[in-house]
Simulated scan of single mutants.
Amino acid sequence: MIFKNKLIDIFSKEGLLEKEKKYFLNRVGEYGTIAKLSRYGIDAYLTHGNKKSFDIVAAGNGKSVKIQVKTTKENAVPTRFFQTYYDLGIETPDYWVLVNSIMDENGQYNEKYYILTHSELMDYHVEQLKRPKEGINNADDLRKREQLLRESRKSKVEAERKASGLDKVFFKEIQKFENQFNKIFNALYGIEKIS
């Protein structure tokens, strides 16, 4: 963004309005992911529209995978995992790329990429959200809980509705998944990419 003949980072104090920042922050994550995949020789394309369960399709070797990207400047990124995938009939992405846009000591933003399979992210959330005393021990229990909450919201007056919360991932807990783009390469080509 140019402001008073000076190039301004959109995330700086002089940058854009909050709504615009969120839009461009999402684009930073999505296009950054496409750029990273391209670096490994993987064709990747952004999907369009608001009612989709994934942001990017990556293709190679006659195969394709669906990728959901979530980007934030915070220490945790909301995924809305069980709020979105409460029913096994809902199409899911194959991979999640969670992007953390971090300001360095010079005031410049840099991104870190964490790549998880859909099942790895589900396992993370199950571990984070399980409540054995409440009978919530696995993904099926969490899906059932979300379905019951959805039904109660439909049947009750506004004041009695129960919110389901928001599933989040804390970056400090998923460090081992940083830059694991080889998972996507392996899914498409079936071989380990040499760095």
Rank of each mutant, 00 (worst) to 15 (best):
G107S: 02
G62H: 13
T72D: 06
S12D: 09
K13D: 11
A159V: 11
R39K: 13
Q175L: 14
Q108V: 07
F181V: 03
L88Y: 10
Y189S: 11
K172E: 13
V28K: 01
A139E: 15
E146Q: 14
L188I: 09
K183D: 12
F3Q: 10
R131Q: 09
K193I: 05
Y85D: 08
M103N: 04
R27Q: 15
Q68C: 05
G49F: 11
Y86L: 05
K193L: 00
Q175A: 11
F177M: 08
S38C: 01
I10T: 01
R143C: 12
F3P: 02
E173D: 15
Y31V: 15
A139T: 06
N182G: 10
G107K: 02
K172N: 10
G60R: 10
E14M: 06
K193C: 00
R131G: 00
E105T: 06
Y113Q: 00
R145V: 07
K193M: 03
G32F: 04
A44K: 14
K51R: 14
T84D: 13
Y23V: 13
E18R: 08
K112S: 08
I90L: 08
V169P: 02
I184Q: 08
E178A: 09
T79I: 06
E91P: 04
K156I: 05
W96K: 02
D55G: 03
D55T: 02
E18H: 07
P78G: 15
D55L: 06
D104R: 00
S195G: 00
F11E: 09
E151M: 15
N106R: 09
G62R: 13
E134Q: 06
D141W: 04
E160D: 11
G15R: 06
T47N: 14
Q68M: 03
F11Q: 06
T71D: 04
V99S: 01
R131M: 09
F24E: 13
K21M: 14
D87H: 09
S119H: 05
I34F: 07
